[in-house]
């Protein structure tokens, strides 16, 4: 068998998973896309193990380890998603923006932070002027 077939299939599966991770909104769908990416890597490992045929069978052993780690990852990830859903009533990734760097009212007021450097103060001042 030509090695290009499994390698191209793995690359395309990885990119499909990449699209899913970037474009999906629900956290569980993102986890599904991560599973697709991990499976693409597994297919690559198996194909190259069959091609190289080393005595240690490193590709197949690493595939088994990757499957086990993916199972652990999906368990932890789903429990984290459930915990987020219990606390926030949503599992949409777009709404989990508490750590996002959005300008708030405290940032727009100049002089609230005294120990900030002058450049940041000037930037905040201009931003406050633009908002005012």
């Amino acid at each position: 068998m030509h090695l290009v077939y499994p390698a191209v299939l793995a690359a395309l599966l990885f990119c499909v998973g990449l699209y899913g991770v970037l474009a999906r909104r629900n956290a569980i769908l993102v986890l599904m896309s991560v599973e697709l990416m991990l499976n693409a890597v597994n297919l690559n490992l198996v194909a190259f193990d069959v091609w190289l045929r080393d005595t240690l069978h490193a590709g197949q052993a690493l595939t088994l380890f990757t499957i086990a780690i993916a199972a652990a990852e999906i368990g932890i990830g789903l429990s984290i998603v459930l915990l987020v859903y219990r606390n926030r009533c949503t599992s949409d990734i777009d709404r989990l923006r508490d750590l996002a760097d959005v300008p708030t009212a405290a940032d727009r007021m100049p002089g609230t932070t005294d120990n900030a450097p002058d450049v940041a103060d000037g930037k905040r001042l201009t931003r406050g002027e633009a908002a005012a």
């Binding site: 068998m1 499994p6 297919l43 198996v46 069959v50 197949q60 088994l64």
Partner: peptide, 10 residues
């Protein structure tokens, strides 16, 4: 696909 690549156990 794994079966076709002779990796039965996986």
């Amino acid at each position: 696909e794994y079966l076709l690549l002779t990796a039965e156990f996986i």
